[in-house]
């Protein structure tokens, strides 16, 4: 079985995996990082979104071996110790979640959006979230949270 090495949340990690192992399985089962969720396993819902080399990607639709040498950030990599990332704090503050299942993917997608477009409009936020499904909230507070999170991320710089 091949060995795969990558950087996850700033730490170098490696593991022996079958080629058919998905990145999300490697994160959850080998590394024990269970913050990344599997909602659909059919590439539709975005619960599994992580950042790979600066872009949001569905970790259920990429093999671990494809990530050899990559720099991966998961939801666990956003907070600074006990201090939440501004986008996480904004979701908490603006009630951007109910059951929370979609939230890791929502937040990872939102952080990627704000990195690329620091002042997104409501329309741009809704458009960007087309690949992130939420069964609970109706999206309204998620969009509000991302607007606030974007401002807070800007202020932090």
């Amino acid at each position: 079985m091949p060995t795969v090495s990558m950087t996850v949340n700033g730490k170098k990690v490696s593991g022996t995996v079958e080629p058919r192992t998905l990145l999300v399985q490697f994160l959850r089962e080998t590394l024990g990082l269970t913050g990344t969720h599997v909602g659909c396993d059919t590439s539709q819902c975005g619960a599994c979104v992580v950042d790979i080399d600066g872009d949001s990607v569905k970790s259920c639709t990429i093999l671990a071996v494809q990530c050899e040498g990559a720099n991966v950030t998961t939801i666990e990599g956003l907070a600074n110790g006990s201090e939440l990332h501004p986008m996480q704090e904004a979701f908490r503050e603006h009630h951007g979640l109910q059951c929370g299942f979609c939230t890791p993917g929502m937040i990872m997608s939102a952080v990627d959006l704000v990195k690329k477009n620091p002042n997104p409009t409501e329309q741009e936020i809704r458009h960007w979230l087309e690949g992130n499904l939420c069964r609970c909230t109706g999206y309204h507070n998620i969009v509000k949270a991302i607007e606030a999170g974007a401002k807070a991320m800007g202020a932090r710089k």
Binding site: S43, G46, V49, D55, S56, V57, K58, T61, I62, S109, D112, L113, W128, E130, G131, N132
Partner: peptide
Amino acid sequence: IGDPAVRHR
């Protein structure tokens, strides 16, 4: 095409 995560791959 698709959504941002699909367009990133």
